[in-house]
Design a protein around this nucleic acid. Sequence first.
DNA 1: ATCATACATCAAAATATTTTGATATATCAA
DNA 2: TTGATATATCAAAATATTTTGATGTATGAT
Lengths: 90, 90
Amino acid sequence: MVSFSDPFRLEIIDLMMDGEVCVCDIMKLTKLSQSRISYHIKILKEAGLISDRQDGRWVYYSLNKESLFLIKEWITSLTDYSSNRKRCCE
Amino acid sequence: MVSFSDPFRLEIIDLMMDGEVCVCDIMKLTKLSQSRISYHIKILKEAGLISDRQDGRWVYYSLNKESLFLIKEWITSLTDYSSNRKRCCE
DNA sequence: ATCATACATCAAAATATTTTGATATATCAA
DNA sequence: TTGATATATCAAAATATTTTGATGTATGAT
């Protein structure tokens, strides 16, 4: 969740919408530098949001649907549980 | 989305799960300082994630279900569109 | 009118994140 | 085996966010 916190990471996530991308794809599509992309990719990977698959010199990244699903479930739980019960400092 | 990026904000959001809370509630439940809470509340408010309602000296905050729903839709679009089509640097 | 309470705001300090540029590693092609 | 490409990693610099403590504002109680 906390790894969603950077606009460039959101951009990278959006690029993965329609399938696998390699760092070189992201470079072409975003004009970000290579090390900058690797840095953000690392954060997304550590958060479990993306998966990687190496093929030769390329590493393909794609969204990890399961973790995205878990986040959706968390958001659902936030709103569903809410009974609008009021509370305050006694 | 970017406003989810702080663990204390996530904690505050979780507290709002079961209804409205005021800053004083959050203070009691988290032991964060008042100005610290106001700071995070402000960020959540600016992101449209929470709504506020004043009642006398108290301000009650609650989750904005619509904006949470929009986030869920965005996540859904990320995974649903994905046809796992491969792509690479030509 | 005065005081206490609830919360907001502000500037400075503390801390964390991001960017950059250099270098490292692995793979493939020639 | 040499050279080029794809990506990772690192340390320093740049930048952004968060925390703190002080002060401000509005409300309601006495």
